[in-house]
Design a binder for these strands. Structure first.
Length: 688
DNA sequence: GCGAACTTAAACATAG
DNA sequence: ACTATGTTTAAGTTCG
């Protein structure tokens, strides 16, 4: 227990105890769910805050206007810069309030990603949160600019009023109102975009009946009753200021685009509906149900014309209202133009977000492929096909099949699926859908072809520990590695093991002990591990059903307990030391043992050379975790290959494939050759 | 559903 | 005493 924490907890926090494959069940338990509610609350709060801030801005502007009007009435021709400055200061906190949410720094994000303490779903939620916060900051900037523009505009308006005096024309007032409304509309547009973003990212879950956030008609939804009331006040203030000159108040509107004669104020229309606005909001999402009385501008009894909140009991009255109030006139045309601008803005934003998404996808794709033309790991299943048919050209590209996509097509995936998705990128859990070489599925081709990928992408390699350990050992120049060197190989070759160090080291040790194919040899310099490829080929990995170590029979126990030490002592005393493994492998190769797997064994010399080169190259990029190269410092390379012989192994009834099995010529009894064999090959009785 | 293969955690032992 | 290494067992998951 302590030994794991001593070496591995240094790079991983305690939350990473379930890292690696262990994180899979945890992620399945819906950890993301815990993060979701707070996100929704914050998103709702955010919207509320923004609406409130927009109202604040409008209120201040209105206040400013009224004050200026009073001053202009009282002191015609005299400016009041003090008031402006004061109000300018008042606007500051509006944007300051947007600063409160904190965005996680890239370092923190990187740390979280590296530790993988979060499930993929949590990561997604986190990213969404980040994006929402960034949007919020963008909004903040926008609001600042809006405030400045509005302020400037109001200053101009004030000057015009002061200079023009009481002879200010209605057109001028309308133009000012128009500009002001456009500004407010812009604010609303940003709010809508933000809302859309939140919705798109799942941060906003509008539930039926949830008050306040109907998503069907953002334009209307984002005009709160207060804002409309403000509009009304603004309009009335102007009307008042204009000596209530307009006799046809009901038709003195805001032409938003043309200098056409002003008609009735836009918001006067829905002033009567303000009282029912809240009920409208309580209507919740109005996803249009196809009905005979469905109209894009009619939902839940409310006219959805921008700026209009008129409520109707039936569809017919709505149609009547639509034809009367929203007929083809200047005002409707202008509003239509505004709505077009809204749509354009949204489309622009959508295009930008699409572009960003594409860039993200491209980046992720390139990251896994960047150095070479063999970007993504070959599909394991298709790789099997390849190894069997051995003649297929261009192997299909895909990510390893993940345990979470068991229904994924087992046939080669088309290249259109080569884009990394959040699912297949993150849900690479334990080494499921592994293949080990006992199935005649060498990992070397896949490993070599996708080496860059595994070195860079935090994707768990789809190989069993045994296969990886074997590969590590076989890649070494001397076909032998210490445990620490095996660790280093894992961390060097796989980003996954670099970033998920919680459990795999123990798994490596377990596998080394558990699998017959891994032979531990020891010399004065320490112990190292070699591979008995024949055993690996047999696939006799785990000796299941083996009698417990501390069984009833004391003699038996003694043998069991001693056997590892016996093996060790035999090897040590005979002085085979480090030469054993290399000679072992070389002997295997030279005896033409049918090694089905990698070229590394079939061509030991070339492979050793290649490995040496590779080791040289890898050594340069060896990270700090590696306390040196994988080559054991104290070991001499390939001494004479004596003391090694090939002998029959008649004890193994399953040994049909290779007539030869390599054991050392140590004068130890076959009984002690491998204590793990006694049961399934000889039985305990033979040992005694 | 079953069993093999595999993973993971934990307890324990041993050596440096 | 601590740590790295190694062994063993048990429980869980995945897959054929």
């Amino acid at each position: 227990m302590m030994q794991e924490s001593g070496t591995e907890a240094t790079s991983n926090g305690p939350a990473n105890q379930n890292g690696g494959a262990g994180a899979e069940p945890t992620s399945r338990e819906g950890r993301p769910k815990s993060a979701t509610p707070s996100v929704e609350v914050s998103a709702a709060d955010l919207l509320h805050l923004q609406q409130h801030q927009a109202l604040q801005v409008a209120r201040q502007i209105l206040l400013q206007q009224q004050q200026q009007q009073q001053q202009s009435q009282q002191n015609t021709g005299r400016k009041s810069p003090k008031a402006n400055d004061k109000q300018q200061g008042l606007q500051v906190p509006v944007s300051v309030a947007m600063m409160t949410p904190q965005v996680i720094t890239p370092q923190q994000m990187q740390q979280i990603l590296q530790q993988q303490v979060l499930s993929p779903q949590q990561l997604q939620v986190l990213l969404q949160q980040q994006q929402a916060l960034m949007l919020q900051q963008q909004l903040q900037e926008f609001y600042k600019k809006q405030q400045e523009q509005l302020h400037l505009q109001l200053l101009q308006q004030q000057q015009q009023q002061q200079h023009a005096g009481s002879k200010q024309s209605k057109e001028q007032v309308s133009a000012q109102q128009l500009a002001f409304q456009q500004q407010l509309l812009q604010v609303q547009q940003v709010q809508q975009q933000h809302l859309l973003n939140l919705q798109r990212q799942g941060l906003l879950t509008i539930q039926p009946g949830q008050p306040g956030l109907p998503m069907h008609s953002l334009t209307q939804a984002m005009i709160p009753a207060e804002l409309q009331q403000l509009w009304k006040e603004v309009t009335n203030a102007h009307v008042k200021e204009e000596h209530n000159s307009s006799s046809n108040n009901g038709h003195r509107g805001l032409d938003l685009s043309s200098p056409a004669p002003p008609k009735n104020p836009l918001l006067n229309q829905h002033a009567p509906t303000n009282g029912q606005y809240m009920s409208h909001k309580r209507d919740g999402p109005t996803l249009e149900e196809p009905s005979p009385h469905s109209h894009p501008l009619y939902g839940h009894g409310v006219c959805k014309w921008p700026g209009c909140e008129a409520v109707f009991d039936d569809f017919q009255s709505f149609l009547k209202h639509l034809n009367n109030e929203h007929a083809l006139d200047d005002r409707s045309t202008a509003q239509c133009r505004v709505q077009m601008q809204v749509v354009q803005q949204l489309e622009l934003q959508l295009a930008k977000d699409k572009e960003r998404l594409q860039a993200m996808m491209t980046h992720l794709h390139v990251k896994s492929t960047e150095p070479k033309a063999t970007p993504q790991p070959l599909n394991l299943v298709s790789n099997v096909t390849l190894s069997k048919s051995a003649s297929e050209a261009s192997p299909p590209l895909s990510l390893p099949q993940t345990p979470t996509t068991p229904t994924a097509p087992l046939t080669p995936l088309s290249q259109t699926h080569s884009v990394i998705t959040a699912n297949n990128l993150h849900n690479v859990g334990p080494m499921r859908r592994r293949y080990s070489e006992k199935y005649n599925m060498p990992i070397s081709p896949d490993l070599s072809q996708n080496k860059e990928f595994y070195m860079n992408a935090d994707v768990r390699p789809p190989f069993t520990y045994a296969s990886l350990i074997r590969q590590a050992i076989l890649e070494s120049p001397e076909k032998q590695l210490t445990l620490n060197e095996i660790y280093n190989w894992f961390t060097r070759m796989f980003a996954y093991f670099r970033r998920n160090a919680a459990t795999w080291k123990g798994a490596v040790r377990t596998n080394l002990s558990l699998h017959k194919c891994f032979v531990r040899v020891e010399d004065e310099c320490g112990s190292f591990w070699t591979v008995d490829d024949e055993e690996f080929k047999r696939g006799r990995h785990v000796q299941r059903g083996r009698p417990r170590k501390y069984a009833a029979d004391e003699n038996f126990d003694e043998l069991l307990v001693q056997s590892p030490a016996l093996v060790k002592n035999i090897q040590t005393n005979l002085g085979y030391g480090p030469t054993l493994s290399a000679a072992f492998q070389a002997s295997m190769a030279e005896n033409n043992i049918p090694l089905y797997t990698t070229a590394s064994i079939g061509s030991p010399t070339l492979n050793s050379l290649a490995n040496a080169i590779r080791e040289e190259m890898n050594g340069a990029m060896d990270h700090g975790n590696s306390n040196g190269s994988d080559s054991s410092p104290g070991r001499s390379p390939l001494p004479a290959m004596h003391h090694i012989s090939v002998k029959e192994e008649p004890l193994d009834p399953d040994d049909h494939e290779g007539p030869l099995s390599l054991v050392t010529t140590a004068n130890h009894s076959p009984d002690f050759d491998d204590h793990r064999d006694y049961e399934d090959e000889q039985g305990p009785d033979d040992m005694l």
